[in-house]
Amino acid sequence: MKRHLLSAGDLTRDDAELILSTAAELRDLADRPIKKLPALRGRTVVNLFFEDSTRTRISFEAAAKRLSADVINFAAKGSSVSKGESLKDTALTLEAMGADAVVVRHGASGAPHRLAHSGWVRSSVVNAGDGTHEHPTQALLDAFTMWRHLGQSRPGGLEGRRVAIVGDVLHSRVARSNALLLQTLGAEVTLVAPPTLLPVGVETWPVETSYDIDRVLPGVDAVMMLRVQRERMNGGFFPTPREYSRRYGLDARRMAALQDHTIVMHPGPMVRGMEITADVADSERSVIVEQVTNGVAVRMAVLYLLLGGNESGA
């Protein structure tokens, strides 16, 4: 694997399965009396969050701390005017502090890429979500969750599994990363959305697309519902929230059409009653809470594999 984790597309199948199997080992740590490993002792991980995301930041923080790394949280919610300057200046500050890894969340697509390749910092860069581009660790934890439920936690376990990703694909970094990673792992992805919420050029992605959720649901092994952000509701992408829910929401009636083993996922935070109803979110099929648990294990695996060895590592 490369020195940075910027895109789920950077991961080979071997890389991805190594992360999943490492995460599987690390997940058991939560059951032990001492939830700590010494692998990153003396390393410094900086959580650099230009956007609010308490859950992702906490997940990375827990992951780094369980590996004994020193963690610095840097909440730099930049103003729109000075945004560019603050990314570079902040990066230089972190470099001066001797950060070994920078976990970055930024509203601008490609900001982690800039951080990694601009020469501002020497540390590893982990993309914790950039604009409408990617969120690779979310995809890894989603894949890990599917792998446990549908793939017996074995290499190749997701081969041929069918996954529907439903909702605002256009603005979703989660959907992009998932589409790339699941394809790498051999799963078949169908993106389901109204045509206004599918990106231009989606036909060149390694996925199927559909406008009709009811036709897709009976055939899938996992269904992932994406959040519909409030600002999209007034953006003219669909007429009303009610119509969206009716056509693309997952409710009890639609859940009944799923196969017995099919799991329901959501990267959170959910808008209950919009893309998913409360009874579905809280049902036995829902692995939404487990996704959070798995997030820590997957992020530990990523940090360990990026920082655990020497830097000149292959």
Binding site: T22, E25, D28, L37, L306, L307, G308, G309, N310, G313
Partner: peptide, 23 residues
């Protein structure tokens, strides 16, 4: 008992895959 993360030469090589710990 996998000892990978406790090794004193962890930093001398690229990160190694973990092996099974099963207590």
């Amino acid at each position: 008992l996998d000892v990978t993360m406790y090794r004193d030469d962890l930093r001398l090589k690229p990160a190694r895959a973990l092996m099974r710990t099963d207590i």
